[in-house]
Computed example of a mutant assay.
Amino acid sequence: MTDPNSRIARDLLARVDRNIVPEVKRNDEIVRNFAEALQRQFNTCNTLLEGAEALVPGKTLLQGATLMHGGSAYEGLCVTKKIDFDILIVLNKPYIFTNFEVVRDSSNFFCLKWKRGNGLSDGAGYLHAAELQSKLFDELIACINRIGSVTGIRKVDYKKGLAAINLYITTDRGTNISVDLAPQIAARKWGECPDLTSLYSLPGTLQDHVRNLECNGSPIYFFSSAVPGRHANQHRLCNISFSMLEKEFLRSNTDVRDMVRLVKLVGEACEWKKYGLKSFLIKRVAVKYCSDLQTKTLWDGFRALLAHIWKELETNTIDGFFVKDQPVYQQKPHKVAEFRAALAEALGWSAEDVRRKLERELSLY
């Protein structure tokens, strides 16, 4: 029998499903229409050659690239109507993982050293990641500008971001949708990157999923030129992402997913984003401690997840889990202390307290 606190928590998530999810699904259809139109542009055989002022015939960096959809909408994690959609652009040859050796840099980011293939190089045998991203961004903008009318879309604006082209779609209904277009180099084997957590240390369901992906030759994790801050060898540094793994894990573990949703929902009401909390941090902690969470009710799991985040922050960061010695959360110590105090306060709330907080602070009801 479901405990009273979990019944209240389920009711809160059911309200999100009734009031938020339908709008997200409408926006998802718009984004898919745009993605299909963008994909068709990748093989039009125009490229921006060095020194040229316009696109000229030739093989594009985007030729043969494929799209993968990510973000909260595809993980069943949306808790507000205003969410970002992520489109991963998986590059084709020669920018494929088997052409590179991965090297861990002293910055704790990664470099891709050419083993074979003919592509952009920094002269020392490493992929010139910054130049690749710059050229890919230019090609993406050219593709966007070539797209004609798309069903449901009134206007598309864009700008270059650190990791992606940030799109701003205005629908025919006047709704605004944000979409990140992120070029990626996909790795399709687990053990071919230094300092990865052992496959056997991952949750069992995630191990099985990784093995299935390896058998199918599907992407498992990704590298992109999206490194914050200033570092030596900045031009060759790559960041690593496990977003699609987390997506599939949460989709197949709906109880843990709902615990993440509830933390996100409370985080929205409490404005924990001012402490630097992002959705992927909650997901990362949930995956790390899933063996504990999977044994609990929704309400107890929600509280356990809050407690795990609180505990992780004892070291002023959150462990990257998938990669050794990879902090994924960086804030000034006083911000972390304030965040831990806010988490401790939330741990003292009953489910009825949470209900009143959400009804007061969020327009979901």
Rank of each mutant, 00 (worst) to 15 (best):
residue 177 I to L: 02
residue 160 K to D: 10
residue 69 H to E: 12
residue 100 F to A: 01
residue 78 C to S: 15
residue 91 L to Y: 03
residue 103 V to P: 06
residue 186 A to P: 02
residue 77 L to T: 15
residue 147 I to Q: 01
residue 183 P to I: 10
residue 88 L to M: 10
residue 193 C to H: 03
residue 76 G to M: 12
residue 64 G to A: 15
residue 106 S to C: 06
residue 82 K to F: 05
residue 135 K to M: 14
residue 132 L to V: 06
residue 122 D to G: 08
residue 134 S to V: 00
residue 85 F to Q: 01
residue 118 N to P: 01
residue 130 A to T: 08
residue 134 S to K: 15
residue 183 P to R: 10
residue 114 W to Q: 01
residue 85 F to C: 04
residue 164 A to D: 12
residue 157 D to L: 12
residue 155 K to I: 01
residue 172 D to K: 00
residue 92 N to Q: 09
residue 124 A to R: 07
residue 88 L to H: 05
residue 192 E to P: 00
residue 149 S to E: 09
residue 79 V to M: 08
residue 169 I to E: 04
residue 152 G to I: 00
residue 133 Q to A: 15
residue 125 G to P: 02
residue 88 L to Y: 07
residue 152 G to M: 01
residue 183 P to K: 09
residue 166 N to H: 14
residue 139 E to H: 14
residue 111 C to D: 02
residue 70 G to W: 01
residue 99 N to Y: 09
residue 123 G to R: 05
residue 154 R to N: 13
residue 153 I to P: 02
residue 70 G to A: 14
residue 134 S to E: 15
residue 141 I to W: 04
residue 149 S to N: 08
residue 119 G to Q: 06
residue 104 R to I: 01
residue 169 I to C: 02
residue 111 C to F: 08
residue 81 K to N: 11
residue 59 K to P: 08
residue 197 T to S: 10
residue 162 L to E: 11
residue 94 P to W: 02
residue 155 K to D: 10
residue 183 P to D: 04
residue 70 G to E: 07
residue 127 L to W: 13
residue 150 V to E: 05
residue 143 C to M: 13
residue 159 K to R: 10
residue 100 F to Y: 13
residue 109 F to D: 04
residue 150 V to K: 03
residue 124 A to S: 11
residue 137 F to P: 02
residue 123 G to K: 07
residue 106 S to L: 09
residue 104 R to Q: 13
residue 196 L to W: 00
residue 117 G to D: 07
residue 184 Q to H: 13
residue 169 I to P: 00
residue 130 A to D: 14
residue 200 Y to P: 00
residue 185 I to M: 13
residue 98 T to G: 08
residue 180 D to Q: 12
